[in-house]
Design a protein around this nucleic acid. Sequence first.
DNA 1: AGGCCGTACTG
DNA 2: CAGTACG
DNA 3: GCCT
Length: 582
Amino acid sequence: MSPVQYAATLPDKWGEHVSKLPRNKLYLSGKCILYVWNEPSGSMQGTRNKMDILYKAGARLMTEYDPERVTHIVASLDTQKNVLQMCGIRKVTELPVHIKTVTWEWIVHQIQGINHTEIYYEPFISRMKQVSQAAKGEAAKDDASSSAKPSYLETSARKREETDDEGSPKKKAKHGPGFQPLQPPSLDASSSSNFDPLAEFYEQAKLMDEFEVEEDEEKPQAVTPSEASEGSKTRWQCDGAPVNSGACPNQDIVDKLLELREIHSARQGSDDMWRTFSYRKSIANIKAFPKRIESYSDARSIKGVGDKTALKIMEIVQTGELERLKHARTDDIVVAQLFQGIYGVGPATAFSWYSQGLRTLEDVKNGKNGVSLSLVQEIGLKFYDDINDRMPRSEAAEIFCKIRQIALTIDAKLYMEIMGSFRRGKATCGDIDILLTRPTDDGKTHHDVMRVLLRRLHEEEILTYDLATPDDLDDLEATYRGLCQVDTAPGRRQRRIDILSVPYGSLGGALLYYTFNRSMRLKASHMGYSLNQRGLYKGVVRDPRDRNKKLSPGTLMDGLSEKEIFDILGVPWQEPHQRVRS
DNA sequence: AGGCCGTACTG
DNA sequence: CAGTACG
DNA sequence: GCCT
């Protein structure tokens, strides 16, 4: 069955289901989406899954290009040819501006309910320029009229459509005979179904939240007592074991323990360091505990919770308070926490300053009692709030787009990806995290790109302050940390940015490492592999008495894709933001 | 009693 | 080398 | 802090 034929079966297959969904779950309602597939006939399961998802999210799934109706085209660089073919055009820039080309990633984010600008998901650089210029031109006039618009790009694109200036391919609709868009079933806002096929998206999103705050190790176990005995095999979080959903029944406990953890982490000394580490683990597992903790043994059944923590939990359960917290938040701790908000200041520096009599950021700024700051700390202090605040996702996207454009003028074959919380679909980002590499099939590398790029970005005043520059700028693997700004207006907020380059063969490993990471690394290590930012190593030999000691580092399996690493580790494939399992 | 993630940059 | 940051 |  061809994709087009398959698409025709969707109403029968899902129509009833979709009609029962509440309106607010139809994330793509009103959008007419042309999905461009790119799969050798035979393996079109991926295409079908994606069509299912689009349809179930309320989209009108188009199977042919109709410039009057299509609002979005889901495409990628790989499918560019197919796009041109399906639309009967020669260049993607011939597409009318009001039709947005987006990657599959964008769809996933819509379904996760994350609102963001579309431009980052623009797969075609030439269109990206078109659209971003259009957006900029209109943004100024736009303020008053736009209130609850999805994104400024959407707004401007619509306006642009009215005054349609440039030669958009004329609407000689090239419908084949019998063509018609697939209509989603009519909505019934009042009814809702129990079974939400998109639930997994939420679960995944939540799961990533856990990662953000915390979490490693095996899947938090000790689920319900009944379930606890069955299955002797270890379950790994990355295997996609079901995750506790809904509100946490032990939130009060978690909050109190979090406070305690913050206190320990503000202190200096290795004792507190490990205590902090320990709290991390136990708190993550308590969060995942499915029912209210009622007894000491309940508490002890949770992994990472020992005698001490269990007693604290009991105190909280019984009295609602934790006596310890009242005495622990002493002056030195509070001040140390304040000081550690300065980038480059950790426990040691913070307490050293405290013991020298400093108490406020003013004291620090004035160099009271002769304390001096490192260059990095100077910057950290100057932009204390900027660095600690998060930025809206759209701003991260905007900065990334600018940087990508500049980078591509240095070398058009560069591969760049924005990582970190952005890639995981968060609505706000603590920093911008850019991965950079370049395919080597033509014998070239990105060895000199970092040097040139950093210079250009400084010239453009996108990069403003360096926090750490790579030891060797010509190395294929290099890390840059600094501050950047979205434009040069005075008083513009400074944002944290990291740019790191990796050898092309490490791309898969790096992508994984910077998004998924912890639990998968652990699984790797138990399977006799080792996973770090360079990739997957096989043949790792560990001391049988002490698993932590590596006797042999193993050999790097170079050039694996993300997918291949998943396969080797036996982890079901999940798209970058952890979602569609296919 | 001793491990608890591994790596890179600063000074 | 210790301290710090980060995923 | 917890775990082995």
